[in-house]
Computed example of a mutant assay.
Amino acid sequence: MIKNPFLLYRKIIRLLNLIFLRPFFKKYGKGTRIEQAYYFTPQYIQLGKKVLICKNARIEGVNVYEGIKFNPEIIIEDNVSIQQNLHLTCANKIIIKKHVAIAANVTITDINHPYKDIHIPIEKQPIEYDLVEIGEECKIYNNAVILPGVILGKHCVVAANSVVRKGIYPDYSVIAGIPGKIVSQYVDNKWTKK
């Protein structure tokens, strides 16, 4: 008799990941687990060791858009935890460094759909892109949006429902709001409100 069917289910999913998914990724680290992905382009994705990606994640490298070619690179380093419903799209480069925790319903993109020509539908206009980098040990809370050109330093927090726009955010910062601003930062051995 099976004592805990949930544990058996997780072991089966882990085994299926290893057998069927691993060969298609640029890199698929030991102990990595993907649970019920929604949509992936594994040929552009590098996963470090012990990465957890929960259900309904969309992690997509965009290699062609409106006839323009791109070379997307998605790097997720060791011990990253991603909860359900991540929406990540990349035409250039997105790096999520070690020990990052991403809560549910987060959007991360290095792509912008500009609205320049009123005679062309927005989705048909050429996209713009910029590097996104999330530093080690960051925590991204529920429903946050990380946009092109964002570079988060080490151990940053992005508050729930925040929209973080292009900029460099230093280590040990707490970012909140729409648009996201630094509301607190650890400097000289103390927390300082901004």
Rank of each mutant, 00 (worst) to 15 (best):
A159D: 03
V51Y: 01
H113D: 11
I118H: 08
I182V: 15
N112C: 05
A104C: 07
K181G: 02
A160I: 04
I68W: 05
I74P: 04
C54H: 12
A91H: 06
F70G: 10
F40G: 00
Q185P: 05
K193D: 08
I134P: 09
I59S: 11
V145E: 02
V64N: 08
P72S: 06
G67C: 04
Q83F: 08
Y28Q: 09
E77W: 01
V174C: 12
H119C: 15
K166T: 02
G135C: 07
V158S: 01
S173Y: 08
L86V: 02
K30C: 08
G167H: 07
D130E: 09
K69T: 13
I12F: 02
E136P: 07
Y172Q: 13
R165H: 12
L147K: 15
L152K: 06
R165G: 09
V64F: 04
I168K: 14
I140K: 13
H99Q: 07
N161F: 14
N112G: 01
W191C: 10
G31V: 07
V51C: 01
E136T: 13
I94W: 00
Y129V: 13
I95S: 09
K154F: 09
I108Q: 12
H155D: 11
S184W: 03
G153K: 13
S184H: 13
T32N: 14
A57E: 15
P5F: 03
I76Y: 00
F20P: 10
Q84R: 04
K166C: 12
N143K: 13
V157S: 09
F20C: 03
P5V: 05
Y39H: 01
V183F: 01
D110L: 06
P72K: 07
K26F: 04
F24C: 00
N161A: 15
A37Y: 07
V187D: 03
L88M: 10
I96A: 08
K3W: 07
N161G: 03
L147P: 04
A101E: 00
V164P: 11
R10G: 14
K193G: 08
L21Q: 12
N17S: 00
N4F: 11
E137Y: 05
A160Y: 03
R33K: 14
T89W: 00
L16N: 04
N92M: 01
H119E: 15
K26W: 03
N79A: 01
I102L: 11
I2E: 07
F6R: 10
A91F: 13
I19Y: 14
Y115A: 06
E136I: 11
I102G: 03
N4E: 02
Y115G: 00
L21K: 05
I118V: 10
I75Q: 09
L52H: 05
N105P: 07
K30W: 14
I75E: 01
G153V: 03
E133M: 11
P179N: 03
L52M: 03
K49V: 03
K98H: 02
L47H: 09
N161P: 00
I76A: 09
Q46N: 06
L18D: 02
G149Q: 00
N189L: 10
V164I: 12
K27D: 05
K193C: 08
I45N: 01
L86E: 06
K50L: 03
I111W: 08
N92K: 07
K3E: 08
V163W: 05
A159R: 06
R14N: 00
K139R: 09
W191D: 05
G48I: 10
K49N: 09
A176C: 13
G180R: 02
K190C: 15
P23N: 03
L88H: 14
T32E: 10
A103E: 15
N112V: 05
